[in-house]
């Protein structure tokens, strides 16, 4: 198949960027989206041009590195799918595809499609640690975990921190990410000791990083490669408000 790509090119953080057009010829429908860009990059390098910079690591849908907005949708048209797991058979030959980086003030573009997502790291750090005995592995049943809580915590823990929620949100809000990170510990007995300081710290850091607020659009859940539910956002609201009015005594 042959495709026309409209790709955001930006040499560096401070440089101006623009959309450039490339032709991708003889693309196999069995290629992943990243492999398709690899092939385009080979051609670019042969021609002595700078290849399109994009982030990738696991290429199996678990690391969250392969961030790009494809035709206006974070990670492209398939539900619950990262870009590395998106295959070219989902496109039509002759199609024009727009490829842009995550757009958010808190995620500055470093080069082409690569953005700086360290704001997420700082939010996680603001959440702090959990007090738990380390050393020898404890007996599996030392701390009882209710099945429903375990499932709910597990769904939240699926978050791979890719930032698609921010990219998709009309307000560039990081609420789904923060909600997932706050909930996967907050729903477990192990996470109770620091539950309040965690949610207060993470939300404050989220706001300091310049992410937008939540309007309950639902765009984040729709593009999340792990289909994390916006119900976690409501849980975050509740957790944050209760923590903020609680006192030490």
């Amino acid at each position: 198949m042959n495709l026309t790509l409209k790709v955001w090119r930006q040499p560096s953080k401070s440089a101006e960027g623009s959309i450039q057009t490339y032709e991708a010829k003889d693309v196999s429908p069995d290629m992943s989206f990243l492999e398709m860009i690899d092939v385009v990059n080979d051609t670019l390098m042969e021609q002595g041009q700078e290849p399109i910079a994009f982030e990738h690591d696991c290429r199996e849908g678990i690391c969250g590195a392969c961030s790009m907005v494809i035709n206006g949708v974070a990670h492209g048209p398939n539900k619950a799918t990262t870009t590395c797991q998106l295959y070219m058979r989902h496109f039509k030959s002759g199609e024009t595809i727009y490829i842009e980086p995550w757009r958010a003030a808190a995620f500055p573009v470093l080069k082409d499609l690569i953005v700086d997502r360290s704001a997420f790291d700082r939010i996680q750090q603001a959440g702090g640690y959990i007090s738990i005995n380390t050393g020898c592995a404890p007996d599996a049943h030392t701390t009882q975990v209710e099945k429903d809580a375990a499932d709910a915590a597990m769904s939240a823990a699926e978050c791979i921190g890719c930032g698609a929620c921010v990219a998709a949100c009309k307000n560039a809000s990081a609420m789904l990410f923060v909600a997932a990170k706050v909930s996967h510990l907050g729903l477990l007995p192990h996470g109770q000791a620091e539950r309040k300081t965690r949610v207060l710290g993470m939300v404050e850091q989220m706001d300091d990083e310049g992410f937008g607020a939540c309007t309950n659009y639902g765009e984040c859940e729709a593009v999340c490669p792990k289909s994390i539910s916006t119900r976690y956002i409501s849980r975050l609201n509740r957790d944050y408000l209760t923590a903020s009015i609680s006192s030490e005594i």
């Binding site: 409209k6 955001w8 949708v73 998709a168 659009y217 639902g218 765009e219 859940e221 593009v223």
Partner: peptide, 10 residues
Amino acid sequence: GYAYEATVEA
């Protein structure tokens, strides 16, 4: 913003 704007759910 995005050059190609799309809305999935909102």
